[in-house]
Amino acid sequence: MMADTIAWVLIVVIAAYACGGGTDYGAGFWDLLAGGADRGKRPRWLIDRAMAPVWEVNNVWLIFVLILMWTGFPTMFQAVFTALWLPLLLAAVGTVLRGAGFALRKPSRRIARRRIFGAVFAIASLLTPYFLGSVLGGVASGRVAVGTPASAHVWSNPTSILAGLLAIAATAFLGAVFLSTDARRFGAEDLVDYFRLRAVLAFGAVVVLAVIALPVTHHDARYVWHGLTRGLGLLFVVLAAFFGVATVLLLMVRAHRWTRYTSVATVALAVVAWGFAQRPYLLPTTLTVAQGAGAPHALRWLGLVALIAVVLVGPALALVYRLDTKGRLQELTDTDTHAAGLPGDNL
C-alpha cells in the first residue's frame, strides 16, 4: 500500500511540474515566435515581467520527481536513466541553459547580448519539454525495461515523437493562457487578444496531435492505449478534454478569471489519465509498482518526508503562486540586478 501511495504522489508531482514548469516553457515558446526586436518587444516585455517572480519556484517540482523516483523506485530509476540517458541529459542541459538565458537576458544592457541570451532561453524552452515528453513516450510504449540498453530507438519512436510534440503544444497552451491573463493584469490590453488567439491555436494543435496519437498508440503502445480508452483512464481523458474546451470558451467570451484554473486542470488531468492507463506498471508491461518499489523502511521514511513536504512546502508554494497572480510580487529592477550601463549598450 505504501508503494502505491508513493507512486500516486509521484504522478501528482509530475502533473504539478507539467503545469508549473510547463507554463514557463510555454512562455519561452512564444518568446521564440514573437518576431524581431521591434515586433517582439511588447510580448517579450510581458513574458519577462510575468515570469520573473516565480520561474525558479517551478523547478522544485522537478527535484521532488527525482527524489521520489530515486528513493521510492530505484529499479525504475536505474532502468529509465540507463535506457534514456541521452534525452534526459539534453533535457537537463536545456533546463540549465533556459534558466541562465532568462536570468542573464534582463540585466544585460547590450542589445547583442540580450539577443544571444534570449535565443538560448527560447530555444531551450522548446527542446526541453520535447525531450521530457519523448522520455515519457519511451516508457509508455513499453520500450524501457530493466536491462534495456541505451539506443535512439527507445526515445525516437512514433509514440515518443508524438509525446514530445504534445508536450510542446500543451506547454504553449498553458503559457498563452497565463500570459493572456497577465496581460490583462498588467494593463497591456493590446496583448490580451494577442495571447488569447495563440492559446486557442495551441489547444487546436493539442487536439490534432491527440487525434493522430490514437492510431499510433494503438499500434505502438497497446497497453497504455487500452488504459486510456476504458475505465478511469478514459474518464480522466474526458475530463481533461472538457476543461480544455471550457478554457477555450472562457477565452472566447473574455472570462479570464477562471482560465488559469481550467487550463491547469486540462494538463493535470491528462497526466493523471496516463497514470491510470499505465497502472499497475511502472514500466509497461515488465515492472509493476510492487516489483519496482524500494525497501519498506525507505518507503516509510519517504512517506514521512512527503507528508512533511505537503504540510510545510505545499502551503508556501501555494502562497507564492497566489501572491504572484494577485500582482503582489514584483520583478527585480535594474538597481536590484546591478545592471549598470556599459559603453556601447546600444550596440
Rank of each mutant, 00 (worst) to 15 (best):
V272G: 04
G231N: 10
A92R: 03
S134I: 00
G231F: 11
W70P: 00
L201M: 11
L10W: 04
W55K: 06
L10S: 03
D220G: 03
L90K: 05
G303W: 10
G94K: 06
L86S: 06
L283G: 00
I67H: 02
T95E: 07
G187Q: 10
N157P: 09
G314N: 07
G35N: 07
T325I: 14
P87C: 10
V200T: 15
D334Q: 07
F236M: 14
Y261F: 14
Y261A: 09
F195D: 06
M76Q: 11
P43Q: 07
A170C: 06
T148V: 01
R110T: 11
A176G: 08
V216G: 12
T335D: 13
Y17A: 14
L332N: 15
Y25D: 08
F276I: 01
L201E: 06
R49N: 12
I308Q: 00
G227N: 01
A169D: 10
F203M: 12
V177E: 05
K326W: 12
A265H: 00
A306V: 13
A83S: 12
Q330E: 15
D193V: 05
A290P: 09
L97P: 05
R115Q: 14
T171N: 11
S134Q: 14
D48Y: 03
F64S: 14
T128Q: 12
A205P: 01
I14N: 01
A316T: 10
A316Q: 00
I308C: 08
M76K: 06
T262K: 08
W258S: 12
A152S: 08
V192W: 04
K41R: 13
V245R: 06
I123E: 02
A241P: 02
V211K: 09
F131P: 01
A124E: 07
T5Y: 13
W258L: 15
V313E: 01
P215T: 09
A124V: 04
W61S: 11
F77E: 14
G175S: 06
W274T: 00
V264K: 04
A339T: 06
L62T: 05
L209P: 03
V207C: 11
F242S: 04
A199C: 10
F195N: 07
K41T: 00
H218K: 14
P129F: 10
L97Y: 13
L209W: 11
G244N: 09
L86N: 01
A92V: 15
A183C: 11
P343I: 10
L329Q: 06
G227P: 02
E331N: 08
L239Y: 09
D24L: 12
V267D: 08
D220K: 02
D193H: 12
L228D: 01
L66Y: 09
A37D: 14
A83D: 04
A140Q: 03
A124I: 07
L191I: 02
V267E: 12
F186K: 11
G204E: 06
S125V: 05
A150D: 03
R115S: 12
I123H: 09
T171G: 08
G101S: 09
P315D: 10
T285M: 02
L214G: 04
M69Q: 14
R143W: 07
W301Y: 15
R143S: 09
T217V: 03
Q330D: 08
H153R: 11
V65G: 04
E56T: 05
L191R: 06
V80P: 03
V320M: 12
G99W: 13
D324R: 13
E189G: 04
A309F: 12
F81N: 14
Q78P: 00
V65D: 05
L302R: 12
G175P: 02
A172V: 05
